[in-house]
Amino acid sequence: MDARAIHKLLANEFGDGVGNFVEQPTEPHIEVDATAIAKVCSYLKENGDLNFEHLSNLTATDYLEENRIRIIYHLHSYKHARWLTLKVAVDRENPHVATLENVYPVANWLEREAYDLVGVNFDGHSDLRRILMPDDWVGHPLRKDFQEPSHYHGISTVRESMLTINRN
């Protein structure tokens, strides 16, 4: 069953929750609504013909010009050796999406990472804290409009070039 057939199946099952199938040469994917993602994933996991029991990757990308953040889910089925990509587009100013933690436990950390670096809020997540950056960091570094602060706790984040230091 290829991605297009899966899309048809999902569209029948969830109606409006599932958006278009985007035919792209390197990454064909299915667009899913932010509210439906948990249900869709749990369906994909439980369905005997699909068996997407593995959330291989979860990440978010900030599209500044479109004013959107896309959350990208890569699902994988060990049984059928098959990949599926889902994308959820959310508003950049107030990105909210349902958590997958209850479907795939691994999503716990992956979602924390996406929250930390891109600033996506995963509704219903049990422990949405920063994971890689320090707890008191301001802003989300992988947002395209992120400005690096000049100091962190009095430590300069800018280092003079070694070449110019040596010249003096």
């Binding site: 792209q24 040469p25 390197t26 990454e27 291989s56 990757n57 990308t61 990208i72 890569h74 990949w83 990509t85």
Partner: peptide, 8 residues
């Protein structure tokens, strides 16, 4: 080209 990809 513009687009995205997933490599495993």
């Amino acid at each position: 080209r513009a687009g995205d990809c997933h490599v495993v």
